Amino acid sequence: MTQSRRMLVLRAVVEDYIRSQEPVGSTSLTKDHDLGVSSATIRNDMAALEDEGYLIQPHTSAGRVPTEKGYRYFVDRLATVVPLNEAQRRGINSFLSGSVSLKDALQRSARLLSEITGQVAVVASPSLAKATLRHVEMVPVAMNTLLAVIITDTGRVAQHGLAVDEMPVIDEVNHLSSAVNEQCDGLSLSKAGEKVRSIADSTGYEDVREVAKALADAFESMALDERANELYMSGASYLAHSRSLADLAPLFDALEEQVVLMKLMSNLSEESNASGVGVAIGSESHTPGLLHASVVSSGYGRSTNASSRHDTPTQEEGSVTGGTSNDPVAFVGSIGPTHMDYAATMAAVKAVARYLTAFISKSGPES
């Protein structure tokens, strides 16, 4: 018995169980797959796979179903993420290209992904800690207050009030703004804070030193603000159709734990495989409520091509070089049963991540 043939049997069992959600027997494998051996040989292979922990037999007379180990082997051998078909890609482009703001794009992405997969979709807003500064404007709004409008490379916009004891003349404020925009463009918010403090202490900025230090404080507080990461979720109603009532309560509890969910999916997207998609199956999530679920996640971020647009990508979704940046600013993910269609879910997650990468690369200030 060859190990390679045995693993072809495992793959066939996983594929059939994902499709039917019924235990798979040797007779159906012989009929539906060209494995080139008899039903008796396949039974022996399935017994060996059960002994090795890849399959389990729920009832003595029933066929077998994959274990976490079986699903893991299957997922790890999905060499490339099969791209979505042309109609699906056109649908994604059409739906997301109607977005009027970053927030709208994220909400639309969650809705779309849940509809494509029939599972729970989770989309995180770009992390300010990973964003870089694009532009800042400072405008006097009261006798002792300036409003700083801070725009990041991901299209996020934040407004901060800067309190001062004495309002400097507007030309000095504009002079400071120009220096900040020239010297801090492309820096992380924490690095921009350091640079602005350096500017404040340099010659020629004595009259706006107080403003500069208040702006540096604003940059640094943005970089540390964990609440700036919002989660957009859609498709929870699909769970009721695929889970037993006993499983639903802990699963909904897990979905409510947004900090835990964010950490899990963010780590998965950063530890993804060569195709840029990470998968946690059952207990691999180390989250009790997700014991009977699988999580698929991919990062989105700065485009590998500065000229990216949110038109239909010319590269295939399965392409590594045409994928999301190696420096994700947030993630897109899907949560479903362990018997989910992994290939289709990974393709959908990857595709939506690519479109969000293109969207934020193109987007200007958030509307």
Rank of each mutant, 00 (worst) to 15 (best):
T154K: 05
S125V: 07
Q119A: 03
D153Q: 11
L84G: 07
S94D: 12
I151C: 11
Q88S: 13
E68D: 10
L102A: 01
L147A: 01
M46T: 07
G98S: 08
E52G: 02
D104C: 00
E115M: 14
A47Q: 14
S127K: 10
V123T: 02
M138F: 04
Q107P: 02
H59N: 10
L49S: 11
R90K: 14
V139F: 10
P66W: 09
E50V: 06
Q57C: 09
E86A: 03
V81K: 10
P140R: 10
Y54G: 00
R64G: 05
T145M: 11
M138L: 15
P66R: 14
E86H: 01
L133C: 12
I151G: 04
S94V: 08
A105I: 02
A79V: 11
T145S: 12
G63S: 03
I116L: 15
L128E: 08
T154R: 06
V123Q: 03
A47F: 13
Y71W: 15
A105P: 04
L102T: 01
V82D: 11
D51W: 02
E115H: 09
T132V: 13
V149C: 10
A148Q: 07
D104Y: 03
T152A: 02
S125I: 07
Q107W: 04
P126G: 11
R108M: 13
D153C: 08
L55Y: 07
G98A: 05
T145K: 15
F74D: 06
Q119S: 06
M138C: 08
S109Y: 06
N144L: 12
V75T: 13
L112P: 06
R77P: 00
A148N: 07
V123R: 00
I151T: 15
A87N: 14
R111G: 11
S114M: 01
A87W: 12
D104P: 02
A62S: 15
L49N: 11
L128M: 12
G70M: 05
R108A: 13
L84V: 02
H59Q: 13
Y54V: 00
R108I: 09
I92F: 05
V136G: 13
A105S: 08
D76P: 05
L113I: 06
G91H: 12
L102K: 00
G70P: 01
V139R: 15
N93M: 05
